[in-house]
Amino acid sequence: MPRYGMVIDLDRCTGCRACMAACKVENNTPEGSFWMYVFRFEEGEYPNTRIWFMPRPCMHCDNAPCAKVCPVGARYKREDGIVATDWDRCIGCRYCEVACPYSVNYFNWRDPEENQYVNWKDPELEALSGGVIPPYKNPDLDRPCGPEKRHIAGASHVEGVIEKCTFCVHRVEAGKTTACAANCPEHAIIFGDLDDPASEPSQKLQRKSSFRLLEEAGTHPRVQYVGGTPHGHGWRQIQPAGKRS
């Protein structure tokens, strides 16, 4: 049984947000939903200013607070470590969103089909796309996953349901890597089996010292960061993504 995890090399990340776009198209996440988010930080005072970047997917914690509080067992941790959300079973109570210290959960307030950026209900387009919304909808996301055969892949299936990064479980089960890792132009995001010493993330961790986010929260995240330099104080986010203000 593989023990999936991710290593993100902050020495290589250029903050381009290609991973955010790749995740979005692969998983058809609706507007405002950033399963992968890339922070751009600035710190210091001119001219001693520093800029750095930090991609933040779901941590798929080993001590997952979200899985512990789900009242219906829709959010659960699989044997391979992926923390999954069964969108069939989720009742939209949002306890997982409250419990998560990393804020990686996104709630579908609207019908996802109404929330896909563009009004795709155009007869001229429907003739070409078969009326699918969005027209580039990923057909792999409807497939049940894992030996447990539950609907845990992709976003935008149902209104009133929570969603978050799935470590692209539908790709991983097909032998591929996550969309963000596959697409990163600087090869800064690396996904793989942490139990295999020859896997890329294991190799990275052997070569560079690592840290995890919110270590003090005791969540034991499966996402580790290498590289970068510890930030000073007075750091703040610049250029946030999201809705127009």
């Binding site: 290609a18 790749a22 580039y136 697409n183 132009p185």
Partner: peptide, 23 residues
């Protein structure tokens, strides 16, 4: 680009289907 794309390359799929294109 050795198997990768910047955010614009990925997002192009939405541009291609955009219903606001000149038809």
């Amino acid at each position: 680009n050795h198997g990768t794309l910047c955010p614009k390359g990925i997002a192009q799929i939405m541009a291609m289907y955009d219903t606001n294109r000149v038809k």
